[in-house]
């Protein structure tokens, strides 16, 4: 067994190693330098690399991302941080109108090798403005790549791949996983390719597709369901744009049933797209309607603890939905 570290330590390690390897890499964001990040993801890096490689910015998300984009145009490898996904909205213009469209609008002459790290997710008692999962906003923007790891190994490998990618990547990290998830992580350099999904558990009755916290909960549900005689195949999507259709479709062809998990509100989320892909491409193989279990269609996530529980697609709810799908 190799070295085991947390999800957040894997992120810090990836940043540290890439900054050491490539002097074009720099970080910019709120509270990331002196303080080491509100969750300590950049702890120690300003001390090690200096104030112009780990820049404490004012509260100016549009600038944080936009300055990153500008610097990328002339050869830097910026990794701006958005402290909470909830506060990415002021940066939307730069992400959507600039980062996503520069390669296209210049006929391929210019490119934006940028990674925006975005801390997201619920089940942390964060209320309306510290819990959101807004990845779907960006999955609707061709020109961006969107990734979201569910374990420390992928957290490091995807981040290294993202920084080396020639195009803008939004790297979502789920704050609930920061310290609750540990796993084996190689000490050296490696990448997890952007694009491919991964079958985390094989099974024959139902295909579960998920990412981030929902993947962790989906795996937990699948292990329990196994004891009830329901065999689930669990796919970690990892990259939300572009979507790895092949891995999903192959699995659904085998199981004939798909359960799609999503923490964000249900309507027009990432799983709506996955559902459409499945029904368009392997309809003949389906033995049941594609089913989604998602957050509620309300502003996420209402604060009071019972409200948050009601909102979230919990392990119990996943199991219930899987039983319903199995029995269909």
């Amino acid at each position: 067994m190799g070295r085991v570290i947390t999800y957040i330590d894997a992120i810090t390690e990836a940043l540290d190693q890439e900054m050491a390897r490539d002097e074009r890499v720099f970080l910019i964001g709120e509270d990331i330098g002196l303080y080491g990040g509100v969750f300590k993801a950049t702890k120690g890096l300003q001390k090690k690399y200096g104030e112009y490689r780990v820049i404490d910015s004012p509260i100016s998300e549009n600038l944080i991302v936009g300055a990153g984009i500008g610097s990328a145009l002339v050869g830097m490898r910026p990794v701006p941080e958005i402290q909470f996904a909830d506060f990415v909205s002021p940066a939307m213009d730069q992400i959507v109108q600039q980062a996503a469209k520069i390669r296209y609008r210049t006929g391929g002459a210019w490119s934006v090798p940028l990674v925006v790290r975005i801390c997201c997710g619920g089940d942390v008692g964060g209320g309306l403005y510290h819990s959101q999962m807004n990845e779907a906003w960006f999955v609707h923007c061709p020109g961006l790549k969107v990734v979201m790891p569910s374990n420390p190994h992928d957290a490091k490998g995807l981040l290294l791949a993202a920084i080396r990618d020639p195009d803008p990547v939004l790297y979502f990290e789920h704050k609930r996983l920061y310290r609750s998830v540990k796993g084996e992580v190689p000490e050296g350099d490696y990448t997890v390719p952007i694009g491919p999904a991964e079958v985390k558990k094989t099974g024959k009755d139902i295909t579960i597709v998920a990412y981030a916290l929902m993947l962790v909960w989906g795996m937990e549900a699948a292990e329990k369901l196994e004891k009830e005689g329901i065999s689930c195949e669990v796919i970690d999507l990892k990259t939300l744009l572009p979507i790895d259709k092949k891995t999903i479709l192959e699995s659904v062809k085998k199981t004939g049933k798909a359960l799609l998990l999503q923490e964000a509100p249900k309507t027009a989320g990432v799983m709506a797209e996955i559902s459409a892909i499945i029904t368009e491409e392997v309809f003949d193989y389906l033995d049941a309607p594609v089913m989604r279990l998602a957050g509620l269609d309300v502003p996420p996530i209402p604060f009071a603890p019972p409200y948050e529980k009601f909102y979230l697609p919990t392990v119990d709810r996943i199991m219930k939905k899987a039983r319903q799908l199995k029995a269909y």
Partner: peptide, 14 residues
């Protein structure tokens, strides 16, 4: 306290 008698009904944030 985010209780039922809060003006925001406990929906927002302390």
């Amino acid at each position: 306290y985010a209780r039922a008698n809060s003006p925001d009904k406990g929906l927002s944030h302390p």
